[in-house]
Design a protein around this nucleic acid. Structure first.
Lengths: 230, 230
DNA sequence: CGCGGTTTTGAGAATCCTCAAAACCAGTGG
DNA sequence: CCACTGGTTTTGAGGATTCTCAAAACCGCG
């Protein structure tokens, strides 16, 4: 997989020892809940998920999306309690690690420790961009940004099943990511379709004109090339 | 300082070797700019700053605030290019590190490497909460949350100069943090003052009723005790 | 065929925005 | 000591965006 960096033999050896097993998750299942103290850390092998937080009265904010190569539960592993929940958008396959062994990883494989920091920094960068979007972009700019963003990430991990990618989310997810109401989100998505930038079908979204989306959102794209994988 | 964890002698030794010098920064000065490739990494020793991003047409989103003990420029050190800028809110004193030596830190002091990941995770947690706020809270809830949040952080690093803390920001900063216009922010702040939750004076904000703010924002507070410091 | 989840539409209302101007305030120079 | 200046806060008013409520249409699935 060209998107990821190479490992040394020792690193690979440690990772497979670190790996505790695999976990298959159904669509719609909750992988982690806010407030829990999970003993595990996961890497997404396949499938999609999202991270979110809830307000006491039920308002939901989706924080980010997770796809192959992403870590789940690092915050909980490092800081103790999970402060957000994770739900699967499709059936997924996860690689399970023991949080216990994380210290060992840092001790014996500093390169991998560095990689984890790299991954955490990348997550921070994505959150920065999302915050800019929700705080300062108009509804249509936000929607354009979000779809271009998810599409770009999916493409980067090779999810383009020969043709274009179908993003498996509902408009409610988009609304909860952008901080908009469902109704207004629908009207906004509709405008993007009229402009022939995207397509909505089979209960999901497809990017038609990526450049157009980026231009509308005034987004530069995620300037990334190779990345580490745990 | 009770908020921070203890170090071993070796760690302290390395840190002082890692440290390249100190940097004094004026109020209003730009510490780092988006797009640059800084060779340095900083720790805040004293003073306040904020991280922000700009849209091409000038709209600004403040991402987070920085105070003593926080790292500046980790993203740039780990990933190459800075994706946000940092500006000082007061005169500050920074501890300067060479980004070059970061790998060495991971290699020789895994405990410190782990600490850096911890710090990055903490930043992510704060961003999650900010995103929830901007996306799903009403204007007055957002303002209450923000002020309680900054106040709590300031208190945690012992910034309460015997009496209450003055947060050295303008209403424009608050507006750009919350994703609101300046005018609406002013009207919202005013409501918080009428409710006797805060005070605005000397060009800054003071918390009067922290519990009241948290309750209004439906915020649990930042459940933290001891943290690492680099 | 009926059901639950999702998308779509319409309409009135609330929140929040922009524009514009005044008030305030600390610092500066005459 | 006072006028002037630039930055910040305050106020008013009309307008745009976005929200809520409500209901209908659509759609895959049992």
């Amino acid at each position: 997989m060209p998107a990821f960096r190479e490992f040394t033999k020792q690193e690979l050896g440690f990772i497979s020892k670190f790996k505790k097993g695999e976990l298959a998750v159904d669509k719609g299942a909750t992988v982690l809940v806010e407030g829990s103290h999970s003993a595990h850390l996961y890497t997404v092998l396949s499938g999609w998920a999202f991270r979110y937080k809830l307000l006491p009265d039920g308002r939901r904010q989706i924080l980010n999306y997770l796809m192959p190569g992403d870590l789940i539960g690092l915050q909980g592993s490092v800081m103790g309690e999970m402060q957000h929940s994770v739900e699967a958008l499709s059936t997924m396959l996860l690689c399970v690690f023991e949080r216990e062994h994380l210290h060992e990883l840092y001790r014996n494989h500093p390169g991998l420790g560095y990689d984890i920091t790299w991954i955490a920094s990348r997550e921070e960068r994505m959150l920065d961009e999302n915050l800019l979007s929700v705080g300062r972009r108009s509804a249509i700019e936000r929607a354009a940004y979000l779809i271009a963003f998810i599409g770009s990430r999916a493409r980067a991990v090779g999810l383009n099943g020969k043709s274009s990618i179908r993003i498996p989310i509902t408009q409610q997810h988009i609304a909860d990511t952008l901080g908009l109401s469902l109704v207004h989100t629908n009207k906004t998505i509709r405008k993007l379709m009229e402009r022939k930038l995207i397509l909505w079908r089979d209960g999901g979204c497809e990017v038609v004109d990526n450049e157009g989306l980026k231009q509308l959102a005034r987004w530069e794209g995620l300037g990334e090339d190779r990345r580490p994988l745990i």
